[in-house]
């Protein structure tokens, strides 16, 4: 999902368990198994902490980078109403990024470090945000599909074993439903409009369908960190389970819109009650994750530019605060 990079092989390296005794690890797992929440200052295995830092910061970075594809249409929204809505949605994404950075900071990693890792390209973010938004319909498709896929993943994360992450996800999920519904409404409006508008909607679905399915990450048999994350109750459902759930709820919505899912192998399996769909083009997925998607460079470039452009504001605010700090506040 927003943390697909976690599923990448060759990054485990969780060997810093030297000072952790078996008794400690067992006691920790017992707490998890009792569905106790782990809080910031509680003892936790180093690998648990590291997994969470990686997952939560990737999630935060995705929210921040995720402002760009939609931000692209802020000045060209078709009406003042749509513009106000889109502005609110993009602002929410910034907010989600901030909740998540806060949650990650409780694990002892600094905001500056996370930002530096994003800007240097060391940290990953969701592959989906490396696709361009070519038409207004893409804004609809993103809300409907991308936020729809995100919700599928984030609802179970509300029950994640780490308290601060779970609380941040509850807050995010409350806001996410607006995002998905406004996206679907844009699609609906286009589909009920002229033939040209409906074609725009179909084109957006064609381009965003597969990248949305890729958001759930590799197939279960290829997902390296899944088993441990499930044992730690960070993750509650597997990539493929969530992807299937997403397809099952989304196909009827596309039918309602009168749009065609771009998959000739898509069919409903009466027996299982699930839709069967084609194999995902994993080469494309790994290519985008590796930095070679249509917009990877542009996204990072823009983020760096925004960060640099804001440097003087951060410094000025600091200088002002230092100048006006009461003498007693020298903590």
């Amino acid at each position: 999902m927003y943390t697909q990079g976690l599923d990448q092989p060759g990054k485990a390296g969780d060997s810093a368990r030297g000072i952790e005794t078996a008794a400690q690890l067992d006691a920790f797992q017992a707490r998890i198994d009792r569905e106790e929440k782990i809080e910031a200052k509680d003892w936790m295995p180093e690998a648990y902490r590291r997994t969470l830092v990686r997952q939560i910061s990737q999630h935060a970075h995705s929210e921040i980078i995720g402002m760009q594809p939609e931000g692209n249409w802020l000045t060209r929204a078709p009406s003042l109403k749509r513009k106000a809505i889109l502005l609110a949605k993009v602002q929410d994404e910034a907010g989600h990024g901030l909740y998540l950075y806060s949650a990650a900071e409780t694990l002892g990693v600094s905001r500056d470090q996370m930002v530096a890792d994003l800007l240097s390209g060391k940290a990953k973010y969701s592959s989906i945000f490396n696709y361009p938004t070519l038409s207004w319909a893409d804004v609809g498709a993103i809300g409907w599909l991308v936020d729809g896929a995100a919700i599928m993943n984030q609802i179970p994360l509300c029950r994640c074993s780490y308290g601060p992450y779970s609380r941040a996800m509850i807050r995010v999920c409350k806001e996410e439903s607006f995002h998905q519904r406004q996206g679907f409404e844009i699609m609906l409006t286009l589909c009920r409009g002229s033939a040209e508008q409906k074609a725009m909607a179909q084109d957006a679905l064609n381009r965003f369908w597969w990248p949305s399915l890729m958001m759930f990450g590799p197939n279960d048999d290829k997902s390296q960190h899944s088993a441990q994350s499930m044992a730690w109750k960070i993750k509650r459902f597997s990539n493929d389970e969530l992807r299937q759930k997403f397809v099952d709820v989304t196909v009827p919505q596309a039918e309602f819109l009168g749009l065609t899912i771009p998959d000739d192998k898509l069919s409903y399996d009466e027996e299982s009650g699930h839709y069967r769909f084609s194999e995902i083009d994993w080469r494309e997925f790994f290519d985008v994750i590796a930095g070679n998607g249509p917009c990877n460079r542009q996204r990072l470039e823009k983020r760096r530019q925004a960060h640099d452009d804001g440097a003087w504001v951060r410094e000025a605010a600091r200088a002002y605060a230092d100048k006006h700090a009461p003498a007693t506040a020298a903590a």
């Binding site: 901030l98 806060s102 949650a103 807050r171 951060r314 605010a317 600091r318 002002y320 605060a321 700090a325």
Partner: peptide, 8 residues
């Protein structure tokens, strides 16, 4: 509710 960074 959570936390924020701020200069003052």
């Amino acid at each position: 509710a959570g936390s924020v960074h701020a200069a003052d």
